[in-house]
């Protein structure tokens, strides 16, 4: 059995404070949901690191190498002399290299984003539906700031609810997983 206790706050400060309290109370790291990026999350919940930059770097390097090889190898394969230039010409191929560096950098950044943000949600099921494993409150997309606590027992549910209410939650919702 897994319960998600979600507290809705009207302002970000209260929500952050609540999240800090939850973490201090050893109820696990809560998940915050907000309509805008919240500032100060890392001070409260600890630093976040993402792998996106590695994806970007790899993509750029991969793109650069494949760009040059695409131009150079195929030019040797289809050797069409033009303009008295060498078959493998640096200046033009550098441009191809440059463009593909950026193209693959972009594509891999996106892949990195999907991987690290675990999107799309529920990739292997019907991913456009809401994943039951991830609680969601629609208000959080409008003007509410939500703190979601994952609880494994009834005690922790009550404890979490109490902390959230104390912190000034306008509403506390209990989302229970089916299985």
């Amino acid at each position: 059995m897994k319960n998600f206790v979600v507290g809705l706050f009207g302002d970000p400060e209260s929500a952050l404070a609540a999240a800090g309290s939850i973490q201090t109370a050893d109820l696990g790291t809560p998940e915050l949901m907000s309509p805008v990026p919240m500032e100060g999350v890392e001070e409260v919940l600890g630093e976040k690191k993402s792998v996106i930059k590695r994806f970007s770097l790899f993509g750029a390097i991969f793109g650069g190498i494949s760009g040059f090889l695409l131009a150079a190898i195929t030019a040797v394969l289809y050797a069409h002399p033009t303009g008295g230039r060498p078959i493998i010409t640096f200046p033009p191929y550098l441009i191809i290299t440059y463009e593909l560096t950026i193209l693959f950098g972009i594509v891999f950044t996106v892949i990195g984003f999907f991987v690290s943000a675990r999107l799309p949600n529920g990739l292997w099921t019907a991913w456009w539906k809401q994943d039951e494993n991830r609680p969601y409150v629609p208000e959080a997309a409008v003007n509410k700031f939500a703190v979601s606590v994952t609880c494994t027992s009834n005690e922790s549910v009550q404890q979490a609810e109490a902390i959230l209410r104390t912190a000034g939650a306008e509403e506390v919702r209990d989302v229970t997983e089916e299985n």
Partner: peptide, 18 residues
């Protein structure tokens, strides 16, 4: 029939070459 023909380099599909 230039040996360093400007026209040859610019064709994107290699329709003109030496």
């Amino acid at each position: 029939h230039c040996d360093s023909a400007p026209c040859e380099t610019v064709c994107p599909v290699s329709a003109t070459y030496h």
